[in-house]
Design a protein around this nucleic acid. Structure first.
Length: 254
DNA sequence: ATGGCTACGATCCGTAGA
């Protein structure tokens, strides 16, 4: 099974990139973030034509998540229990016995801001949710834009970013807390190129300078990590005209 | 040098992203 995650930064704008990409790479499951579409406007027919069923949880302008799969999606749930939230950031479904959780973590804006506080509270609720999901589903995959670069090697210029949002110690601690539940960062199960990132700022020629961060992740429970044969970031779609600022990340389970 | 893009919904600029 091939699993993927991609923050598309507007599914309406990126639909062609997405359908081209799935045609080329043939993932079985794709988690999307920042669809920025109300459910009524979700392009279900176009994705069906591309070979994918979809479960989606969206809103106008901001946020929005979806799971696409070539096989049926079962037991779909959305949101974090005990954490009422207008912002549509979480959807989960079971696909062929694998519990898939698709996440769009809050950005946090700036350390010390109200949005930063919301981000840390969201992560605390997420941890509780994933602990329950793990107890229920030993085959658990958590994919998404987690908006945390876990280590300095995930940051193009750690000095410049030190203490900033996406990199700050409380955010990294929240990320490590997820690993502490028994999840593995699948990207780090394998040798990877130096300076591997999944997001590059649109400004300042960020992509051309490889001035990026690795903030999109695939975390796997122990039961799935032992079946994982590869994890990679696909930079190709970031090179297209009018790209998303994020690249897709893919993991293969044997 | 704290900006520089991009998407969106609203106008012809503000909000948000990361």
């Amino acid at each position: 099974m091939k699993l993927a995650t991609w923050n598309v930064n507007s599914l309406k704008v990126r639909l062609q990139h997405l359908t081209d990409w799935v045609a080329r790479t043939a993932p079985d499951v794709v988690c999307l973030q920042e669809t920025k579409l109300e459910d009524a406007k979700f392009p279900a027919a176009e994705l069906e034509a591309a070979g994918y069923r979809a479960s989606f949880y969206g809103q106008k302008t901001y946020n929005g998540v979806a799971i696409l799969a070539t096989i049926p999606l079962e037991d779909v749930s959305s949101g974090l229990p005990g954490f009422p939230d207008e912002q549509k950031r979480v959807i989960a479904a079971t696909v062929d016995g694998v519990r898939v959780v698709c996440l769009y973590a809050p950005n946090g804006q700036a350390v010390g801001s109200e949005k930063y506080d919301y981000k840390l509270r969201w992560y605390a609720a997420l941890r509780g949710f994933l602990a329950e999901e793990l107890a229920r589903h030993p085959r658990l995959a958590v994919l998404g834009d987690l908006n945390v670069a876990p280590e300095d090697r995930d940051v193009h210029d750690p000095k410049a970013w030190e203490g900033q949002v996406l990199v700050s110690e409380p955010e990294r601690a929240a990320f490590r807390d997820l690993l502490g539940l028994g999840l593995k960062d699948s990207f780090r199960l394998f040798e990877q190129p130096e300076k591997s990132f999944s997001w590059w700022d649109y400004r300042m020629m960020g992509f051309r300078r490889n001035a990026g961060l690795r903030i999109d992740h695939i975390l796997l429970s122990a039961g799935l990590a032992s079946d994982c044969t590869s994890c990679a970031i696909d930079k190709a779609p970031r090179k297209l005209e009018r790209p998303s600022d994020h690249a897709p990340v893919t993991a293969v389970l044997s």
